[in-house]
Design a protein around this nucleic acid. Sequence first.
DNA 1: CTGAAAGCGCTAACAT
DNA 2: ATGTTAGCGCTTTCAG
Lengths: 346, 346
Amino acid sequence: MSVDEGPSAAQRRAPTLEAVAELAGVSRATVSRVVNDSERVSPEAREAVTAAITALGYVPNRAARSLVTRRTDTIALIAHERPDTVFADPFFASVLRGANQALSLTQLQLVLLQVQGDQQRDRALRYVGNGHVDGVLLLSLHGDDTLATSVSKAGVPLVMAGRLLTGEVVDSVDADNVGGAGLAVRHLVATGRRRLATIAGPLDMSVGVDRLRGYTEAVLEAGLPDAATRIAAGDFTEAGGRAAAARLLAEHPTLDALFAASDLMALGALRALRAAGRRVPEEVAVIGFDDAAPAAYTDPPLTTIRQPVERLGQEMVRLLLRRIGDGPGEPVAVVLPTELVVRSSA
Amino acid sequence: MSVDEGPSAAQRRAPTLEAVAELAGVSRATVSRVVNDSERVSPEAREAVTAAITALGYVPNRAARSLVTRRTDTIALIAHERPDTVFADPFFASVLRGANQALSLTQLQLVLLQVQGDQQRDRALRYVGNGHVDGVLLLSLHGDDTLATSVSKAGVPLVMAGRLLTGEVVDSVDADNVGGAGLAVRHLVATGRRRLATIAGPLDMSVGVDRLRGYTEAVLEAGLPDAATRIAAGDFTEAGGRAAAARLLAEHPTLDALFAASDLMALGALRALRAAGRRVPEEVAVIGFDDAAPAAYTDPPLTTIRQPVERLGQEMVRLLLRRIGDGPGEPVAVVLPTELVVRSSA
DNA sequence: CTGAAAGCGCTAACAT
DNA sequence: ATGTTAGCGCTTTCAG
């Protein structure tokens, strides 16, 4: 048995302002005022209108409104990813969740713009640049910054995650990656480790750069200059982490702790260590950053530096809303705290 | 240094049809015809218009168009989740990716409607019911079907993932869960296992029901009626899987194979087995369904039944587009094949 | 094949 | 405090 469809929504025309006005015995303008709860409207009028609205099930027509106000009540989330990349990135999903949450307090809608090739890039840019959205959230997973500046140049409010490596400053929200990496190092040192090494992320992304910098600064501060030289590059993937760990292990057989700049790389490191017959954490402690991939899935659970990914999404929206409301101004860079989450005895 | 913002997009008005018409020396109507590449337009006119369009960088104003056509060129993805649920579900992200991919071939935009409480539910329903979108993709993670029927009743084209348990039929795309579970059982039996048990998913979701049914039918067919009684309920989470496995193990200490109806539950089972000192897969083989959670993260990698999650998203969009284009008709239920992916010697 | 004209439903001056 | 009016940019009859 199929669900009864009735007349399609496109056919059965929704009630208009006009209808509400008539039923309430006022003018369209008054109804509009009530709907946008602006200006002074007499209590009686307001009540009559409200009643009519509920009676009719009136919902404002977004298109009509948008046509005159030039606002769209819509913001775009642009995820710029290379063809090879996983859109199913848990980081992305968590940010999305946070953003949606913050947005659910407003009347705004979120549209998703996935950018892969140059063609999609241009399409997204045109879409955004032509007033189809009130603002843009940019998740530039690859530190590719031309999108950010393009959007910004188009005069559309923009908030990005992370920061640009070019030195240009746009509104952004980021986790305290430098501080977090320091946290990891100090934890390892405090638990007696001395021969540290790190698996760094891609250095064309601010997050990769910052986590490496945090590591380096902290090991130097701890009086472990050698550790600052034990660096292997990873690419934020499990395979990359595994390979990097294997290399480090080969070059520095005596290392007793590994800081991986991402959760997936930490997982890879764990595997490499196991494959090499090293015991974790007895022989080699592993600590990773937590980018929302299931770090807790590892066995044993790895100690991690947690960044508040969901909150990051929330803050991005909050900042964007502020910018949309207040207009342009000095760019703001919000930095969210990171946190050490001890999960094993490492 | 901050990015130069210039006049905001809202201020600097985008070129209109009118402008294009003037530059091309034709009427607005002709430009409109060219833009919608419809009707007969003389080659010369078409060319002049095209040139003017590129010269001006014209992009149609969606709001204006939508106002008259009553189409929105927008479809909504509704994810209905209970408060406790993970939006960061890898399944969701993969479906999203697939949907976006299919959509990128069109001019449609995707808006995301996250539904958590009743309030958000109603809001989404009003939004959808009032012609703000041309169609709806429903990811009812919890088998809650009232949303589906509500949307359908509102006359808005709808495609859901999975199927309704009420027996109502709406357009849907689903993986072959029954067949997949059968695949798992036959694989286990073929590799010499005889004392099977299953960790079932929630039975208020079609996916839970179907995977259990597939298991049951297959073990009966294999002449293992006892296996049909060894069922523990899980909730698709790692913790649930772990607890269920522990229970099964306690009741049936001699079991030699476990079919988990989700990847996370398979992971939980793996942990429970390890905690109980059982070796995997030597003593107990574990096989799980692959819902896009990182099943490959387990160590050893688990053999899984893969469902094509990304394609599911694509097919949902395709079906929806067809429905939007062709209008109502007999509901279609697309079933996607599942596949055995052998990863260990289990 | 093309143009003129009439709105789509709403908001925002401007009156009153 | 409320009503009147003039569009927003586009599509779509209807004439020609």
